[in-house]
């Protein structure tokens, strides 16, 4: 008798669902990064002042805390994530204008961009191919993030270059940890919302780029 059971076993369905979240996350990540680059170029062309960076980050953070989690389960979430990432890109443009005006600015920006891409691709590839569960890092990286936020608040007013350098270095390591943590959670099917997954990875990439830019700017005497 011919086999008429065309149902997919539970484990296969789970794998298909996980792969779908992974694919959607990377597609949305590529689109939001592209959109950020576009808004950053607009910001550079308009020569937006540097205080715009702080305004963009404040508004984007508030939207990330209050609006995005409430809309992430509906189609509105796509619009919100493009708004948040577009805003961050626009703010980033004002910082990039400042760096590009420096003598070695274009080289610094290019190195920060290449370094960020290498870190993201390397860590994502490692997390996906090793198939390890990096969830054990959760408590450690969230605790580290809270300590770093306190240091950032202090340095907003203290403006110490050495503290700034330490914060940037810590952020690069913490965000690298977040990439491992988030990617392994998506790959293992623990994260099912691709909008929130994209937002997490986008923030890690954004923070690595900004921190790398700051480190290379300070160390390159710019």
């Amino acid at each position: 008798m011919a086999n008429t059971d065309f149902s997919i076993p539970r484990s296969s369905q789970s794998v298909i669902s996980t792969n779908k979240v992974l694919k959607n996350t990377y597609l949305l990540l590529a689109a939001t990064l592209g959109f950020s680059a576009f808004t950053a170029m607009i910001s550079i062309a308009l020569a937006v002042p540097s205080w715009m960076y702080l305004v963009s980050v404040i508004v984007a953070m508030l939207m990330g805390i209050f609006v995005l989690p409430r809309t992430a389960n509906s189609s509105k979430g796509i619009g919100v994530i493009f708004l948040v990432t577009g805003l961050l890109g626009f703010g980033l443009g004002s910082i990039l204008s400042m760096y590009l005006a420096l003598p070695n600015g274009p080289q610094t920006v290019g190195l920060a961009f290449g370094g960020t891409a290498a870190i993201f691709l390397g860590l994502s590839g490692y997390a996906l191919t090793s198939k390890r569960d990096f969830s054990f890092m959760g408590g450690f990286i969230f605790a580290g993030m809270m300590v770093v936020i306190l240091a950032v608040v202090a340095n907003l007013f203290l403006q110490m270059p050495a503290l700034s350098l330490s914060i940037s270095s810590a952020i690069i390591l913490l965000m690298s940890g977040f990439i491992l943590f988030d990617t392994s959670r998506i790959a293992r099917g623990e994260e099912t919302n691709y909008i929130m997954a994209t937002y997490g990875i986008y923030l890690s990439i954004f923070n690595i780029f900004i921190s790398l830019l700051q480190i290379l700017g300070i160390m390159g005497d710019d």
């Binding site: 190195l111 860590l123 490692y126 990096f134 890092m137 270095s169 480190i215 290379l216 160390m219």
Partner: peptide, 20 residues
């Protein structure tokens, strides 16, 4: 398994600093 890639990230940052 986590420290290995994070060490590689630190090494890459050092290389980038040397480049600038």
């Amino acid at each position: 398994a986590a420290i290995l890639p994070l060490g590689a990230v630190a090494a890459l940052v050092v290389l980038l600093i040397l480049a600038v």
